[in-house]
Amino acid sequence: MHFEIFHLTRFEYSNSVTESVMELRMQPLTNENQHCTSFSLQLSPSARIFEFVDQFGNIVQHFDIPEKHSKLEITTKSFVEVNEPQKLPESLPLESWKQLDEEIEKGDFWEFLLPSQFAHPTQPLTDLQKELNATREKDPLTLLREINSFFKANFEYAPETTEVDSPIDVAIKQRSGVCQDFANIMIALVRGLKIPCRYVSGYLFHRTNDRSHIAQDATHAWVEAYLPTLGWVGFDPTNDLIVGDRHISVAVGRDYTDVPPTRGVFKGNVESQLSVAVRVRQAETDEIESSELHAIRRKGFTVTMKPKIQEAAQQQ
């Protein structure tokens, strides 16, 4: 499928700030599953844009705005062609565990096997593991399907119940959260089984006929797990979906820490408000999927004239 994605991010500061320095991970990936045919980025105030590819293969743009400003607007427009994904078998043979262990031994999967900032073992996670009874007794694909289905059945999708930097324990204990939380938890569970697993940030295109409770949010996060003979397979625990041609990948990493859409520092003692609007449209049919420009969250800044970090909370 072909998609056109429009993404507006706006920071409004209660007073002027200076020396904003920002990194963006917003350009859809080009890989074996999808092709980003064009990407444009506009900034207001304008700035010179630089680009590099990070250690996970994500395309990162960065810029700085030295002069006074009280608003920063980032607008991106992308065209992406997503392939029909491979047909997954219902399950894999049990021997695939052995094959997986051998591939891990040889390949470079370390980053996606070791604990990371959000996806690391905790007591609540261990309890969850027991509840799920996720052990290597079943084949890896069946197990992943079960874990993937667990969230929709047992967790409530509830925006604003977690923060962008909440540890996974918060969502596990209250049994609610957003896609970012579910992805981080699933990664920790899957790595606990010694299956390489990574975080994907991106967009989900909702067909009008299956609008769900997350319909107004097109920015999304899910996971990919590595399986023998199949390679990286995408699982969307928020929607209990196997990732298909409606998922558009933007960046991959160990967990959310590696892939925030915006990461920035500025000077100023101000309050900052972030608003985001995203529209994903199927390019051939003109079908429109959009969300109103809405305030995501407020974050207070109390430190005088010292740089402070702001991370765009693309909560869903």
Binding site: E19, V21, E23, F50, F52, H62, D64, V265, P307, I309
Partner: peptide, 22 residues
């Protein structure tokens, strides 16, 4: 560099790592 490493660092230079990288 608070942009690349510890975000709470007030001793560093935001963006230094990208300048270094390039």
């Amino acid at each position: 560099d608070p942009l690349a490493f510890r975000p709470d660092s007030q001793l560093g230079v935001p963006g230094l790592f990208n300048a270094y990288r390039s």
